[in-house]
Design a protein around this nucleic acid. Structure first.
Length: 222
DNA sequence: GACCAGGCACATC
DNA sequence: GATGTGCATGGT
């Protein structure tokens, strides 16, 4: 499983994406709590819609755990409406706040001393937080070396012969985590680049492989 | 006017 | 355990 060939390939793919696109600057947020809220809001939603919701929350003074706890659900719903699924996502945000409270944490930063794998299990226990959201919070809010994978990662990895089309989340994550050095900045940039490349060149219907920075690796992977 | 987006939970078989 | 469906908005 742990082959140096795959490790080299993955690193070379990273280099190629970074050389073409430059650094991504993820996660665009003003602090760990905002990252966590953004991670919930971006579920199955375009980031531009999330930006509108975040801007609304900021304007309403609702971007801290403390203020959100005191807010009425309808008020949160109204503000995050542009991000879609606003009733569900409001409940998810409150579930997350309840989790913080149970942990005796006033904010996300108070989880700093929790063990990573333990914290991951706890996050997955929160209704509304699945693997991708949990890992995004761990990596982008809490700076833990956890590789975030998603639909783009699966599509790209599949097209390069690294995984079957119907690969599960844990299997896909394991491919990256078992072949790459667990460094926060590296994992951060890698996931961001995969999403950016996926959006631009690896769409479901129109894969524009000719212009994709990963094009040179298509043969090598098989 | 479909199709898609930085998913997840729940029902049903 | 695998497959299907609801959730909802805005861009392409």
């Amino acid at each position: 499983m742990l082959s140096t060939t795959t490790s080299r390939l993955l690193v070379a793919m990273f280099d190629a994406m970074l050389a073409r696109l430059g650094p991504s600057g993820w996660w665009p947020a003003q602090g760990p709590f905002e990252v966590a809220v953004g991670a919930i809001l971006t579920q199955n939603t375009n980031w531009s819609n999330v930006e509108k919701a975040i801007a609304n929350l900021r304007r309403a003074g609702l971007l801290t755990a403390e203020s959100l706890r005191r807010a009425r659900p309808e008020e949160v719903e109204k503000n995050i409406q542009p991000s879609g699924f606003f009733r569900q996502k409001t409940k998810k945000i409150f579930h997350f706040l309840e989790f913080l409270e149970r942990e005796g944490a006033r904010d996300v930063t108070d989880l700093i001393n929790n063990d990573t794998s333990q914290l991951r299990k706890q996050l997955l226990n929160v209704n509304g937080i699945g693997p991708e959201t949990a890992d995004s919070i761990l990596l982008y809010a809490l700076n833990r070396p956890v590789f975030v994978v998603d639909a783009y990662t699966a599509r790209i990895a599949h097209r390069h012969g690294l995984v079957p089309e119907d690969v599960s989340y844990p299997e896909l994550q394991e491919v990256f985590m078992s072949h790459l050095a667990p460094q926060v900045d590296f994992f951060n940039e890698y996931h961001a680049l995969l999403v950016r490349v996926g959006k631009k060149w690896c769409r479901k219907r129109l894969p524009l492989c000719n212009e994709c920075p990963l094009r040179p690796f298509l043969r090598e992977a098989i």
